[in-house]
């Protein structure tokens, strides 16, 4: 049975962790990594909903996040619109964009769907590179500081708290959504589209909605990232960023909200840890992905559940 306020142990644990870890941060660099992890996790929650619950793979979400970020930044720098309002306009624009492209895209299945999102993503990234008068081209452009109703975000702790709050709040909404009749429809689409269709569910309508939601979240996270780092470049919208996001979701565990967070955190931290290996960085990164996909294709969260299941079984 659904509870009115769905404050469960998982969400409390996450909040506690988020509150405690800053005490272990030694300098701003730690904060930076943490904030990027949080923003990536945010995108992954939306992407996970699309991939894990609605069964639709997107290889273009990096580009959507990047484009959303660019829209917000350009509105601010060229037209002097306040950050919060420019993010809002970016969200509206990107949802419209996502809704329009979702119609032809979501008719496609499996590989073809993945390829269409890949194609759109790469086109976006090329446009951002070429239209340098607007975007600063491949060099990127600097971004004004972030304010909410005149309150300026300057130090890392403020950003950390903003992103943490956003993540916890989003997770809370999503767990509500996934456990609701709406969420059941999504899960049924993943289970059997024909079954869903046979009880009156307009499958493509729901796929569109989820696609739009995931793009909206990517836009918010992408814009915040631009404001946080004070800089935006087409690499945010690159194919490799899109791939990174998909790998995060799958590595963490498809269809598991907390899996997406684990994946995002690990894959954001990992390259930083690997920098000490210098030339071997890419090699090790690739090897780890291969290793995980061979030995735990259902992601890290599933391994955790397996272990937990065995522990409980042995207790009986």
């Amino acid at each position: 049975m659904l509870k009115r306020y769905n404050i469960n142990r998982d969400i409390l644990t996450l909040s506690a962790i988020l509150i405690i870890i800053p005490f272990f941060f030694q300098n701003d660099f730690y904060y930076e990594i943490a904030i990027v992890s949080l923003l990536n996790a945010l995108i992954c929650i939306g992407l996970n909903m699309l991939m894990g619950y609605a069964g639709q793979v997107s290889l273009g979400h990096g580009a959507f996040a990047g484009l959303g970020g660019y829209i917000a930044v350009i509105l601010g720098s060229k037209y002097g619109i306040t950050p919060l309002f420019s993010i809002f306009i970016a969200v509206v624009t990107m949802s419209l964009f996502a809704f329009i492209i979702s119609k032809p895209i979501l008719r496609l299945k499996g590989h073809y769907l993945a390829m269409a999102t890949l194609g759109i993503g790469i086109i976006i990234s090329i446009v951002l590179n070429v239209e340098d008068e607007l975007t600063g081209g491949s060099d990127g452009m600097s971004v004004d500081s972030f304010t909410i109703f005149g309150y300026e975000f300057v130090d890392s702790l403020q950003w950390y708290m903003l992103c943490s709050f956003l993540l916890v709040f989003t997770i809370w909404m999503f767990s509500n959504l996934i456990d609701s009749p709406f969420g059941r429809v999504l899960r049924s689409i993943e289970g059997s589209e024909k079954a869903a269709n046979s009880v009156g569910i307009n499958v493509s309508h729901y796929k569109s909605i989820v696609f739009v939601i995931s793009v909206v979240i990517a836009t918010i996270a992408g814009s915040l990232y631009a404001f946080f780092s004070g800089f935006i470049s087409p690499s945010e919208a690159s194919f490799s960023h899109s791939i990174e996001l998909v790998v995060m979701v799958v590595l963490g565990g498809l269809g598991r909200i907390y899996g997406a967070i684990i994946g995002a955190v690990i894959l954001t931290i990992l390259p930083q840890l690997l920098t000490s290996f210098e030339d071997y960085q890419t090699l090790i990164y690739g090897s780890i992905i291969i290793f995980v996909m061979i030995f735990m294709p259902k992601g890290i969260a599933s391994v955790y559940e397996d272990v937990k299941g065995r522990l409980f079984a042995s207790n009986k």
């Binding site: 509870k3 769905n6 429809v185 009880v199």
Partner: peptide
């Protein structure tokens, strides 16, 4: 019973 049930997006998010 899906066709009878309220599935508003925001309503679902906020229970």
């Amino acid at each position: 019973f899906d066709k009878y049930m309220d599935k508003g997006l925001l309503k679902s998010c906020f229970r």
